[in-house]
């Protein structure tokens, strides 16, 4: 393994390459690591730079997720959502976090599937939970929720107890089903 770079060194190299398109955010706290924030237009370039640039070589996309900033006024993110990428390099043993603001009315982000295979399901789950589309991801079906589920559960305006989905089933007593309920079909397909 090579020498791991600190997040500060990585953001420095990024800003050398991308300049104005990149802003750096330092969360509060003693041991906080820098987070780079890029616009979604330059996200694809940034990610492929991080993957291929000698010395960085992030060959491992650890995770993709999103944060809904509806009830939290985070100064570094001016839009409602932020897609969050956790990167790791098995070659140099360093980590990095990247964020992209995503507006609510036009919620899409370019997909990272071309670069890392692990993005396929991570993006699919993020789409399922937040309703953010990943353009270029070939499989944008719902992952965890039923395919006819309305709404996106991890959005802050979705109630914890749902909107009655969990009560809408036919009821079976000893004599068989007595009420139609939602008339859902079984999982067999």
């Amino acid at each position: 393994m090579g020498t791991p770079l600190t997040p500060e060194q990585i953001t420095e190299r990024l800003s050398k390459q991308f300049g104005d398109e990149l802003s750096v955010h330092l969360p509060p706290g003693k041991s906080a690591a820098q987070v780079a924030i890029v616009s979604r237009e330059s996200l694809e370039d940034t990610l492929s730079f991080l993957q291929s640039e000698a010395g960085l070589e992030f060959d491992f996309l650890v995770d993709v997720t999103a944060v809904d900033y509806l009830h939290f006024d985070e100064p570094s993110i001016q839009e409602r959502f932020a897609a969050v990428y956790q990167l790791y390099s098995t070659i140099h043993n360093h980590r990095f976090t990247l964020k992209t603001p995503v507006p609510e009315d036009d919620a899409w982000v370019p997909s990272a599937v071309e670069l890392w295979g692990s993005a396929l399901w991570a993006e699919r789950e993020t789409h399922d939970m937040y309703g953010i589309r990943f353009k270029g991801n070939p499989d944008m079906r719902r992952l965890l929720m039923p395919e006819d589920f309305p709404g996106f559960p991890l959005r802050k305006d979705y109630p914890l107890r749902g909107r009655g989905e969990r009560d809408a089933f036919p009821q079976y007593l000893d004599s068989g089903p007595i009420s139609g309920g939602a008339g859902k079909e079984g999982g067999g397909g």
């Binding site: 944008m140 079906r141 719902r142 395919e147 006819d148 309305p150 809408a168 939602a182 859902k184």
Partner: peptide, 17 residues
């Protein structure tokens, strides 16, 4: 809509019906 039954609604069947 949910109470009425999701399957009965032709408009919304998820993103990949």
């Amino acid at each position: 809509l949910l109470r009425k039954g999701l399957a009965a609604d032709p408009e919304y069947r998820g993103e990949h019906p």
